[in-house]
Simulated scan of single mutants.
Amino acid sequence: MGNLPTLIGFSAVVMWSALAVLTAASGTMPPFQLSAICFLVGSTIGVAAMIREPARFRAFRQPLKVWALGLFGLFGYHFLYFTALRNAPAVEAGLIAYLWPLLIVVGSALLPGEKLGWHHIAGALMGLAGTALILLRGADGGFGGGSVLGYAAAGLCALTWSSYSLISRRFGATPTDVVAGFCMISAVLSAVCHLLLETTVWPETTGQWLAVAGLGVGPVGLAFYAWDYGVKKGDIQVLGVASYAAPLLSTLILILFGHGRATVGIVVACLLITGGAFLAAKDLLKARTSG
């Protein structure tokens, strides 16, 4: 497995780390509307790459279960994520949502042929402690202003993406081009839900429009193709460990762009969640070092 595919896969982690700051900068557009626009941009990227080789559209001939899994992961996660950041402070909601790497490593230890070790349990407890610290702190020292909804959506984000990633192991032969189809259908579903359930709100400034476009091109677009290519062609163990840096990178970016403050509580919560993920991944880290 070459280094280039691994680097391409890692670029997805970097792009996902910008998901929170771009969402926070995108204004007050409701979740389904934001999802529809972002997924439309993401699908356009994939379709544009396939047009030059029409035979690649055969990738869309997949069983219903593949489509169901893709929509569950992409559509479900991002609707919950945008909901979380619309109803809770960006740093806190982002940290909780980025519990997914920890849940992936703990969940994978429960799969057939794997064992749940002390470090998995300790890592999970550290992640839970970091989450508890965020929840007890709340938006302004407590729950208020709809933050309970935001924190709940963030927790469901982590469960959705971790379960999607674990189940995806069964579909390793599915071509990356199908991701364009996932994005396309997710865009249509988001648009329908928006028309039925939400009031349209357009970005008010150029900066907000650029943030929406950035979401569609990067975290809700190229990142999916890069991750899929990386895990299939690159070193999946390196990528697995690299993803545990996502909550730290996301938090640092948010604070850097003024969407949060580096309080003692945030720093401790970030260290607990990130540290817990690295502890749970101890076996992978050890294997890469000895290898």
Results as ranks from 00 to 15, higher is better:
Ala122Gln: 00
Leu95Trp: 11
Gly260Pro: 05
Cys193Val: 07
Val241Tyr: 00
Ala187Val: 00
Val217Ser: 03
Gly94Pro: 09
Cys157Thr: 01
Thr131Pro: 05
Met126Ser: 07
Trp16Met: 11
Gly144Gln: 12
Gly27Glu: 12
Leu7Pro: 09
Ala48Glu: 11
Gly117Leu: 14
Gly207Trp: 02
Val14Arg: 11
Leu135His: 07
Ala191Asp: 02
Val105Glu: 08
Ala132Phe: 06
Gly260Glu: 11
Val41Gly: 01
Arg86Met: 08
Pro31Glu: 13
Glu198Trp: 10
Arg52His: 08
Arg61Met: 05
Ala280Val: 01
Ser165Gly: 01
Phe57Trp: 11
Ala24Arg: 13
Thr263Met: 03
Leu272Val: 10
Ala191Glu: 02
Gly234Phe: 04
Leu19Phe: 08
Ala154Tyr: 02
Gly2Pro: 14
Leu256Ala: 14
Asp140Leu: 15
Gly107Tyr: 06
Thr23Gln: 07
Thr251Ser: 14
Leu34Tyr: 05
Ala187Gln: 00
Leu215Gln: 11
Met29Leu: 14
Phe278Ser: 01
Phe10Asp: 08
Ser168Pro: 02
Ala124Glu: 02
Leu215Arg: 09
Ala154Pro: 07
Leu85Pro: 05
Leu254Val: 05
Ala213Cys: 13
Arg261Gln: 04
Ala246Thr: 15
Leu254Met: 08
Leu4Lys: 09
Leu135Phe: 06
Ala246Asn: 15
Glu53Arg: 10
Gly138Met: 10
Leu128Gly: 12
Thr274Cys: 04
Lys115Ile: 01
Trp67Gly: 00
Ala18Pro: 06
Leu156Cys: 11
Ser147Lys: 02
Gly207Cys: 04
Ala152Ile: 14
Asn87Ser: 09
Cys193Thr: 07
Leu103Thr: 09
Leu222Val: 06
Ala122Arg: 00
Gly221His: 11
Gly207Ala: 02
Phe257Met: 03
Ala122His: 01
Gln237Met: 11
Leu271Thr: 12
Cys193Ala: 14
Arg288Met: 11
Phe143Asn: 13
Thr83Leu: 15
Val201Leu: 13
Pro5Ser: 07
Leu69Pro: 15
Ala226Cys: 09
His120Pro: 00
Leu285Asp: 02
Thr205Phe: 09
Ile8Lys: 09
Arg86Pro: 12
Val41Thr: 04
Ala129Met: 10
Thr174Val: 15
Asp283Cys: 02
Ile273Cys: 01
Leu271Cys: 12
Val91Phe: 08
